[in-house]
């Protein structure tokens, strides 16, 4: 590489370069025209529609949006807290479930059954039903010491459901580790527990990080569902304002705020996935 003679492009290569540049420029012009045409048509249809003025007033009222912004933001903080605290709890419970479901230890047989049943139930039932059942069912039991706090109950319901999803994701990661990795570890004298801890799990978790991050984004969105219990999160805050004034701008504000978090997050995740798959491809070549 270093000891080649200095290179300057040949005449032919310069021609090709000019051609490529022209082609690029033409592509950009076409993309621009097409975009302007399509967006212009949509906006024209929207803005000239008979109902546009009233839609604009009830959904996109800028002044009202500014007014409710602080309340909705305060609600969103609840969603974020719920996501972070719930995320940690989900991680721990899901890992335990995944390990229980993959264990072969005879002493843990009953727990393996419990883990399997748990995952079946909470993965199969709609989240909103679990939230309603936990949120209204637990207080109805009137057991001393059990909380009636809707935020706590809502979080528990979300954690119950998501633990089941995430447990399956982790388990699929565990199963994806090639069995000869296990054999190699066992033949070095590592116990099955050490093999799981030092050889299988680290590889499994690495592989499932992208799907787990996607679940994390879903979790953030689904925390909005706890609003049905009366938790004043972003959705509920918007709802209170909207039903007071019959103006739906607060919903739009809430939606935009969620998007402001989820879009960058998903972009980040996509990049991680791409980098990860590039890495795997290069590993495959080795």
């Amino acid at each position: 590489m270093s000891n080649t003679t200095p290179w300057s492009p040949s005449a032919r290569e310069r021609e090709r370069e000019i051609y490529r540049k022209n082609l690029q420029a033409r592509k950009r012009v076409i993309a621009l025209i097409s975009t302007v045409l399509v967006l212009g048509t949509f906006s024209a249809i929207l803005l000239t529609s008979p109902g546009w003025d009233s839609v604009k007033a009830t959904f996109f009222d800028l002044d009202y949006g500014k007014e409710v912004f602080p309340t909705v933001i305060r609600g969103l903080v609840v969603n974020i807290q719920l996501t972070l605290i719930g995320g940690v709890a989900i991680g721990i419970i899901a890992l335990a479930l995944a390990l229980l479901k993959t264990t072969k230890s005879p002493a843990l047989t009953p727990f393996r059954f419990i883990a399997t049943a748990y995952i079946d139930i909470f993965r199969g039932a709609p989240l909103i039903l679990i939230i309603l059942l936990v949120g209204f069912g637990v207080p109805a039991l009137r057991i001393q010491g059990l909380t009636n706090n809707v935020i706590v109950l809502g979080t528990i319901a979300v954690v119950l459901t998501y633990s089941a999803y995430v447990a399956e994701v982790i388990r699929s990661g565990i199963l994806s580790v090639h069995q000869s990795q296990r054999a190699a570890a066992r033949s070095l004298g590592l116990t099955s527990r050490q093999t799981m801890r030092y050889v299988v799990l680290p590889q499994a978790i690495r592989r499932v990080i992208p799907p787990l991050l996607n679940d994390f984004v879903s979790l953030l969105k689904d925390t909005g569902l706890v609003s049905i219990l009366g938790v004043t999160d972003a959705v509920r805050a918007a709802q209170i304002n909207a039903s007071r004034t019959f103006n739906y701008t607060p919903y739009v504000v809430a939606a935009i705020l969620f998007l402001l978090i989820t879009i960058p997050l998903t972009r980040f995740i996509d990049r991680q996935i791409r980098l990860g798959s590039e890495k795997q491809n290069s590993e495959g070549l080795a």
């Binding site: 090639h178 054999a183 190699a184 033949s187 070095l188 004298g189 590592l190 116990t191 050889v199 590889q203």
Partner: peptide, 29 residues
């Protein structure tokens, strides 16, 4: 586990742990 400590085996492929450096691979056991 006790017996396997006295035996070493190397397979055709998929031997090393990909998430560890060579030194970590060797020092794990």
């Amino acid at each position: 586990d006790l017996i396997r400590r006295k035996l070493g085996i190397v397979f055709q492929s998929f031997n090393l742990f990909p998430h560890m450096t060579i030194r970590e691979n060797i020092t794990l056991a």
